[in-house]
């Protein structure tokens, strides 16, 4: 099954290699990985989607924590997080296209239904930009193909995720408040580091 991890990591050369290398060592395929700046200075935020056994999550998270460049790791699923992906699609459309001059207007209509935007118009192609869940993006691509359009290029960012609400976000809680910063200075223990219902021994691949 697909697991989605949010990792805050140090923004330094080589950190991405460490994360990628970890998944390689565990023989787990990364489905998508997005990296960008976060709300904290010198800290990158990664959203990693990987395909692994449903009970592998604890071990992946524990292994991510073992990287010295990792600040925090959170695993999210669809119900408690907003998950989005950005996609750019270049479609062949123009006078020489089989649909002829109608092709452009048909694509405009389709993009409206899927809430995609036209971001570039060239004599023989149209570029669409779309943000949404992965399934929605796949839906648009499928409709375009089945309508006989030639998709020239697709560029997808891979998933980005963020927990819903403020209080449920352990990431914000851990990093944004004065209290938790103090905790970092004096490492005693963080009783809320993991939700109480997560009992490690419960998860194991039989």
């Amino acid at each position: 099954m697909l697991h989605t991890f949010i990792a805050l990591v140090q923004d330094r050369p080589g950190v991405l290699t460490r994360v990628a290398s970890l998944f390689r060592r565990l023989n787990i395929n990364i489905v998508s990985l997005t990296v960008g700046e976060s709300e904290r200075a010198e800290t990158s935020r990664m959203t990693i989607v990987c395909d692994a056994h449903e009970n592998a999550a604890d071990r992946i998270r524990a292994s991510l924590y073992k990287l010295e460049t990792t600040i925090s790791v959170d695993e999210v699923n669809r119900t408690d997080a907003v998950v989005r992906e950005l996609c750019l699609i270049k479609v062949a459309a123009g006078p020489s296209h089989p649909h002829g001059l109608h092709s452009r207007s048909q694509i405009f209509e389709l993009s409206q239904v899927f809430r995609a935007r036209v971001v570039d118009l060239a004599p023989e192609s149209i570029m669409l930009e779309m943000t949404g869940s992965a399934s929605k993006i796949e839906g648009l691509l499928q409709v375009l193909r089945e309508s006989g359009y030639t998709i020239l290029e697709v560029s997808r960012t891979g998933r980005m995720a963020m927990r819903r609400g403020h209080h449920t976000s352990r990431v914000l809680e851990a990093l944004g408040t004065r209290q938790s910063l103090d905790l970092q200075e004096f490492p005693t223990q963080d009783p809320d580091a993991l939700p109480s219902d997560e009992i490690l021994p419960g998860a194991f691949e039989e």
């Binding site: 924590y65 970092q184 223990q189």
Partner: peptide, 9 residues
Amino acid sequence: PYRPHPMLR
């Protein structure tokens, strides 16, 4: 100080 491992418990 060495970062405490959040899963140490």
